[in-house]
């Protein structure tokens, strides 16, 4: 499925993307390229469609009854909404971290290797290596290496979220989607997650939805501003934050609404 011709181009790109929840249109004619290996922040007021766009990328919106998508959304040049696309395979390539940390009520180890187990990986050594690698990547290894067999429920909220990142990293996705990953966390945990995002980008393409504009400025290379289901403006984070082109962007950035 991977298309080598696109190795240098955007990893994902939306063209004329419309999205409907039943009668209600949530996304209107979105044209957006997600740059490979960078962190892209999606910002905008509540209900602007940024989370909806995020969930289009791994087709989590399929779970919503009556949802409908128009236009094209490609991953490595392949239309992910085309008939015959294996959504299971898509979700392995596009991992996701949710707003509320949602570890499974299993051991830490089982949480991390869950994605591999359901993909049919059985080798003990392979699972162990993936577990250690993922936990190291998510800066959790030193904290949990002595209690991998204990329930993940005993960890703190910030650790939960890093565990969820480790869980997503374990299946080696190309893109990791993050839906306001720090909104349920305290400031110290937030710093850790932000450091982690900076750590991970490069190896992974990261798309992060955030309400926190400082956060977007800190962690992202590019930023897209959504407003009322439309993509208003997209560009380099630094540029968008200092010299926004659209008036709505400026109003939002300066806190006139939000």
């Amino acid at each position: 499925m991977r298309n080598e011709d696109h190795a240098d181009g955007p990893i994902a790109s939306a063209a004329g993307l419309n999205f409907f929840y039943g009668e209600k249109q949530a996304l209107v004619d979105i044209n957006l390229d997600i740059a490979r290996g960078l962190a892209t922040a999606l910002i905008g007021p509540s209900g602007c469609g940024k989370s909806t766009f995020l969930r289009c990328l791994n087709r989590m919106n399929d779970l919503v009854d009556g949802s409908r998508v128009e236009g094209t959304l490609t991953l490595d040049g392949e239309d992910i909404n085309a008939p015959g696309v294996d959504v299971i395979d898509l979700r392995r390539r596009v991992g996701m971290v949710f707003q509320k940390p949602n570890p499974f009520p299993k051991s830490i180890y089982e949480n991390v290797v869950y994605g591999l187990r359901i993909a049919g990986v059985r080798g003990r050594a392979e699972l162990d290596a993936a577990c250690e690698h993922s936990l190291r990547r998510s800066a959790l290894w030193d904290e949990v290496k002595d209690r991998l067999r204990e329930s993940a429920m005993g960890l703190s909220g910030g650790q939960h979220q890093r565990l969820c990142i480790a869980r997503a990293v374990a299946v080696k996705p190309e893109i990791i989607l993050m839906d306001e990953p720090c909104s349920a966390l305290d400031p110290r945990s937030t710093v850790k997650i932000e450091d982690l995002i900076s750590e991970l980008k490069g190896d992974y393409t990261i798309v992060i939805v955030t309400h926190n504009m400082q956060q977007a400025a800190r962690v992202s290379d590019r930023t897209a501003f959504f407003y009322e289901g439309k993509l208003m403006e997209e560009g380099e984070t630094k540029k968008l934050f200092t010299t926004p082109v659209r008036k709505e962007t400026e109003d939002y950035l300066t806190g006139r609404f939000g």
Binding site: N58, M60, L63, I88, D89, R91, R92, G95, M96, F98, K100, N102, P103, F104, Y114, G115, R117, I118, A119, C164, R167, A168, V171
Partner: peptide, 19 residues
């Protein structure tokens, strides 16, 4: 959230249910 977490990792509905 738990359901979605499992599905987002590429689990089928049955795997999510069962595991």
């Amino acid at each position: 959230e738990i359901r979605q977490g499992s599905l987002a990792l590429g689990a089928t509905r049955f795997q999510t249910l069962w595991r």
